[in-house]
């Protein structure tokens, strides 16, 4: 099968280019990461991140045939119709909207900065009990669909609002985290958190395009989380 890979080495390339590889997968429905590893054996210079190879560490977010996904849990059969059969090339590019360091490795700096801005940690200055803080299963259930985020950036880098305003719009991943703490019965910083989001850009630049929802490899729904925060902000305003 043909694999077309985005290449850019700042030391040797004046601009990025696409390199085609012929890879023999023997018709197996391999993961995209397996195919990259086969290419890297031939060309060790190919740069990409990977760690857990099972979809929980979030290292290998990339753009596969036009769609952001984790290479390690994307089988060829799901990359795009015809890829597995060799009728269409597998096309791999870095995540869009972030500066490329080399090949498929992007500079995640701004993504992490936006994450840090939402104070992604529990805030509760009340003296802690000698055992755990109690939380009912119902209260805990509110964190499901939120705490599982792996910070792969597939969502944020698929969001047009983030492409336009990467410094000012926090992006779906950071906002999902914001709601993860707002929704936590143990957190005491609701007002402080809402104050920080109460401007035209941080949150309100979300236009409900929902690319984030359709690409999230963990099946999470940042748009819904943003909706919850939006309601809180509006409630507070009236």
């Amino acid at each position: 099968m043909k694999v077309s890979v985005y290449r850019y080495n700042p030391e040797t390339d004046r601009e990025p280019w696409m390199e085609d590889f012929e890879v023999d997968t023997g018709g197996r429905d391999l993961m995209v990461l397996d195919v990259l590893a086969m290419i890297k054996e031939r060309d060790p210079g190919l740069a990409y991140r990977r760690s857990c190879r099972e979809g929980v560490c979030g290292s290998d977010g990339m753009n596969i045939n036009g769609r952001n996904a984790l290479a390690c849990v994307t089988p060829l059969s799901e990359a795009a119709p015809g890829v597995l059969e060799g009728r269409k090339p597998l096309v791999i590019r870095p995540l869009p909207g972030l500066p490329v360091i080399r090949d498929l490795a992007v500079d995640m700096g701004i993504f992490y900065e936006q994450y840090e801005k939402v104070q992604p940690y529990l805030i509760n200055d009340e003296p802690a009990p000698a055992i755990e803080r109690l939380q009912s299963p119902e209260e805990r259930a509110k964190l499901d669909g939120l705490y599982e985020c792996i910070l792969c950036a597939c969502c944020t880098t698929s969001c047009p609002s983030f492409w336009w305003n990467p410094e000012r719009f926090l992006g779906p991943a950071a906002l999902l985290q914001s709601w993860r703490f707002l929704a936590d019965s143990r957190d005491r910083a609701t007002e402080e958190r809402l104050d920080q989001l109460d401007d035209p850009f941080s949150l309100f630049r979300c236009r409900g395009i929902m690319n984030c929802v359709s690409v999230c490899p963990k099946g999470l729904n940042p748009t819904r989380a943003i909706g919850h925060i939006r309601s809180k902000l509006l409630e507070r305003a009236v």
Binding site: R133, L134, Q135, Y147, D187
Partner: peptide, 20 residues
């Protein structure tokens, strides 16, 4: 150390009585 983790915010699953 486990209570510390909980106080830091680790989202443990819960029993009906609210404990870990």
């Amino acid at each position: 150390t486990v209570y510390e983790l909980e106080h830091m915010g680790l989202p443990f699953s819960r029993f009906e009585n609210g404990r870990i």
